[in-house]
Simulated scan of single mutants.
Amino acid sequence: MWIKRVLDIVLALIATTCLSPLLLATYLLVKLSSTGPALYWSKRVGQHNQLFSMPKFRSMRVGTPQMATHLMNQQKDPNAFLTPVGSFIRKTSLDELPQLWSVLKGDMSIVGPRPALFNQDDLIALRTEKNVHTLKPGITGWAQVNGRDEIPIPQKVALDVYYLQRQSLCLDIKIIVLTVIKVLRRDNITH
Rank of each mutant, 00 (worst) to 15 (best):
M1Y: 14
M1A: 15
K4Y: 13
R5W: 11
V6W: 14
L7D: 01
L7M: 13
L11K: 02
A12L: 04
I14C: 11
T17E: 09
T17H: 13
L24V: 15
A25I: 07
A25F: 15
Y27I: 09
L28P: 06
L29T: 05
L32V: 13
T35A: 13
G36V: 13
K43E: 13
N49H: 09
Q50M: 10
F52Q: 01
S53P: 05
M54F: 06
M54R: 04
K56L: 04
K56T: 07
K56H: 06
F57E: 01
R58T: 10
M60E: 07
M60Y: 04
V62N: 08
G63R: 05
G63F: 08
Q66G: 03
Q66V: 13
H70T: 12
H70S: 11
H70K: 14
L71S: 07
N73G: 04
N73M: 12
Q74T: 14
Q74H: 15
K76V: 12
D77C: 06
D77K: 14
P78C: 08
A80M: 10
T83D: 08
V85A: 07
V85R: 06
S87E: 07
I89L: 09
I89C: 06
R90T: 04
K91C: 04
L94A: 06
E96Q: 03
W101F: 14
S102D: 07
L104G: 11
L104R: 15
K105M: 08
S109F: 03
I110F: 00
G112R: 03
P113S: 13
P113E: 05
P115S: 06
P115I: 04
F118C: 11
Q120G: 06
D121Q: 15
L123W: 01
L123Y: 10
I124P: 04
L126M: 12
T128Y: 12
T128W: 07
T128H: 15
T128C: 08
E129Y: 14
V132H: 01
L135W: 04
K136F: 08
K136P: 03
K136E: 06
G138E: 05
G141P: 02
W142D: 02
G147T: 02
G147F: 13
R148K: 15
D149W: 08
D149A: 12
I153R: 15
A158I: 07
L164F: 14
R166N: 15
S168M: 10
C170Y: 10
I173V: 15
I175S: 03
I176K: 04
V177E: 00
T179G: 01
V180W: 00
I181K: 08
I181H: 04
R185A: 09
R186D: 02
I189C: 04
I189A: 14
H191Q: 12
